[in-house]
Design a protein around this nucleic acid. Structure first.
Lengths: 214, 214
DNA sequence: GTGCCTCATGGCAGATTCTGCCACGAAGGC
DNA sequence: GCCTTCGTGGCAGAATCTGCCATGAGGCAC
């Protein structure tokens, strides 16, 4: 349930307090959202419960929905970490596959909590519109990390973009199906879904390489 | 540039005026956004230019970003229309392919205007976060129309969801690449991208049917 | 044509979100 | 121990969005 802050270094006491406060605030917000629904919780409510000033809240989070986006952010940094740590020779699809598998394990472990948060999002018109999986900026980040891993730089080709977009799309659908209780064997299902992506790879006319195309 | 209102029937004079006003307001808003940037235009500005009251603005559009989402809404209803009109026997991928092609033509025709709007979105942090292609509700709509066309009802299977999600994902990437001026032969490129989806179809282990699987 | 109903509009007040600015005080560096 | 750095809170204010009500134009029945 805790929200470790990706790869940020906690150096001093000041940073520690800040991080602890931020996590506490986020968890307080999630709890209230789950209890009363997103629209029935004001920033002032969250601040009262978390014992911080509204002004401080908006220093932690850019907006109220931003708190809801935190898990997705965390999961993409998890993914980014995994990509960065992948062996040099491994092809992109394999890296993505294992990264998604790792995310899958995380989701399965936090199933109840993520499911509750999903319900919150579904019950708010405003959130339903804006929280549809991985935002484009994060997608770009993943693409950049894949390229960096291969020592490439410059503009990614469309095949590269498409591969990553398919991966996060498949994950989004899986995530949704799973949290709706539609899936009995989640990790097997995730593999099956990812297989549809790998199928896009090994087809004549798609040159079968690692989707680096321009 | 005009924004025909999907399949809504304009019956009387009252509806006519309302629709005309709505379209005028949207176009005024887009113009201002393009001129000054989204964040430098207030609802009051738009209302002054379009000669309506702010209260009326919020009857036309749920929010300020909602105006920006209008083209996407229009394009998905175009897609929905196309799906509804497709011949009965045509398989889903073929329907999606031709629907996307039709959308592609639309985008090419309105290239300059859509490009300007894309720049607006890219230049606003707030918009960049929330306007990432087709929102899930619209996706559901497309899935439902495909199912209805085959006379099916009930919950769509994950393969169905995945197919549609891939299609709109591919379209999103294409749309972005094209409006960024990365594509010389747009419609050919769109076909190429769609080919990656059809590749997910005809693989052993995916049963090669029309992705209706549960 | 007259009278009545429907409903889009506009004005107003208020809740809420979010930001700029400043002062205070704790943490960190010397 | 002193000074700097910086996280926090309070305040004012801009901007978004909603509920409520009065007005007037369009629509409908007779």
């Amino acid at each position: 349930m805790a929200e470790p802050e990706g790869s940020d270094q906690i150096t001093g006491l000041r940073d520690l307090k800040r991080e602890r406060n931020r996590v506490l605030t986020a968890e307080t917000a999630w709890r209230l959202f789950i209890e009363r629904g997103y629209d029935n919780v004001t920033v002032a409510d969250i601040c009262a419960a978390a014992e911080i000033a509204p002004r401080t809240f908006h220093r932690y989070f850019a907006s109220k929905d931003d708190v809801v986006g935190e898990p997705v952010r965390y999961m993409t940094s998890l993914m980014a970490e995994h990509i960065a740590g992948a062996p040099a020779g491994m092809p992109d699809q394999a890296v993505l596959r294992s990264a998604m598998h790792k995310l899958g394990v995380f989701v399965v472990e936090h199933r109840d909590w993520l499911g509750a948060l999903r319900t919150v999002i579904q019950n708010s018109v405003h959130l339903r519109e804006s929280h549809q999986g991985v935002p484009p900026e994060r997608e770009q980040e993943i693409i950049a990390m894949l390229a960096a891993r291969r020592g490439e730089s410059g503009e990614p080709g469309w095949r590269q973009r498409l591969l990553v977009a398919y991966a996060v799309t498949a994950f989004r659908i899986w995530h949704d199906e799973y949290l709706r209780g539609k899936v009995s064997d989640p990790l097997k299902q995730l593999d099956e879904m990812f297989a549809t992506i790998e199928a896009t790879e090994s087809r004549p006319g798609l040159e079968g390489h690692s989707l680096g195309g321009k």
